[in-house]
């Protein structure tokens, strides 16, 4: 049981670390890495609970769930990176002389200050 708790507990700690980093850091890449770390934490928990003592065979179901989860996480990460790279392209193309920025900042704190402005944004 100690082994499961250490492994699964490490997963919970990873989840918490990822959550903290996601909320605190603004650059998109850090947020994306934080989300992947959170996901890895949850996968750790699944792997830890697959083995519940030597009397029982290891449970293949959580293993399969983790494999499915990894593919889902890879897909989501790929799409997020592509959207981000599109944003950077848009940033660089109109003003090629502008200094390189550290990447778009996406605010995710549920603070009211992040309400979008209601400026007429339909015009390209």
């Amino acid at each position: 049981m100690i082994a499961q708790f250490l492994y699964g507990g490490a997963g919970i700690l990873l989840f918490a670390l990822g959550l903290w980093s996601l909320l605190v850091h603004a650059p998109l890449l850090r947020k994306l890495i934080a989300l992947n770390i959170m996901g890895a934490g949850v996968f750790h928990v699944f792997i830890a609970i697959a083995h519940r003592g030597d009397a029982l065979p290891p449970d293949p179901v959580p293993h399969a769930l983790v494999l499915t989860g990894i593919v889902v996480a890879v897909s989501a990460t790929a799409l997020a990176l592509a959207l981000n790279s599109r944003l950077e392209q848009g940033e660089n193309e109109p003003e090629p002389a502008s200094s390189p920025s550290p990447g778009p900042r996406i605010h995710m704190q549920p603070a009211l200050s992040t309400e979008p402005s209601s400026k007429g944004a339909t015009h390209p």
Binding site: L28, G39, V42, V45, G69, L87, I106
Partner: peptide, 23 residues
């Protein structure tokens, strides 16, 4: 693109939290 990138990340946070509950 920027609004939907945020939407994607928020959605991911939501589903990972949900998945921990399932675990």
């Amino acid at each position: 693109v920027s609004a939907n990138l945020r939407y994607l990340l928020v959605g991911l946070l939501g589903s990972i939290t949900y998945l921990l509950g399932v675990a």
